[in-house]
């Protein structure tokens, strides 16, 4: 079969509505290159990061979302959702790559560049 639904890279893909993500929550989007974590803050902002903690690869989508950051479920690193950077005492510990994201009429569009 080998059917693929991967859009050509560089295209925006609609992955769902903002309201599909709970406030202060996250959902995963599986991709051939690994999961993408899409977060929604208490203030209704949406962010997307690769779902891998810079520390030991913990799935950030499973963490607690607070303000504009998420706390990794494995060892508690706080990650800035806008930049993917570790915060506080762990600043400079590395970064979870940011996935380009756009909101249109309440829908979430993300772009994967390969």
């Amino acid at each position: 079969m080998n059917a693929m639904l991967i859009p050509a890279t560089g295209l925006w893909t609609d992955v769902g509505a903002i309201t599909d993500i709970p406030r202060r929550g996250a959902r995963r989007v599986p991709t051939p290159g690994g999961d993408i974590a899409v977060f929604r803050s208490g203030d209704n902002e949406v962010f997307a990061l690769r779902d891998r903690c810079p520390h030991k690869g913990g799935p950030l989508s499973q963490g607690i979302v607070h303000g504009r950051s998420v706390t990794c479920p494995l060892h508690g690193l706080a990650i800035d959702l806008a930049s993917g950077e570790a915060l506080g005492a762990d600043r400079g510990q590395g970064c979870a790559p940011v996935i380009p994201l756009r909101i249109e009429e309440g829908r979430i569009l993300i772009r994967t560049d390969g």
Binding site: P7, V15, P22, R27, P30
Partner: peptide
């Protein structure tokens, strides 16, 4: 249900 299902499978391989 949203806790256990991915947001979207659009970027996934289908079949294979």
């Amino acid at each position: 249900g949203d806790e256990f299902n991915p947001l979207s499978r659009r970027l996934e391989f289908v079949g294979a």
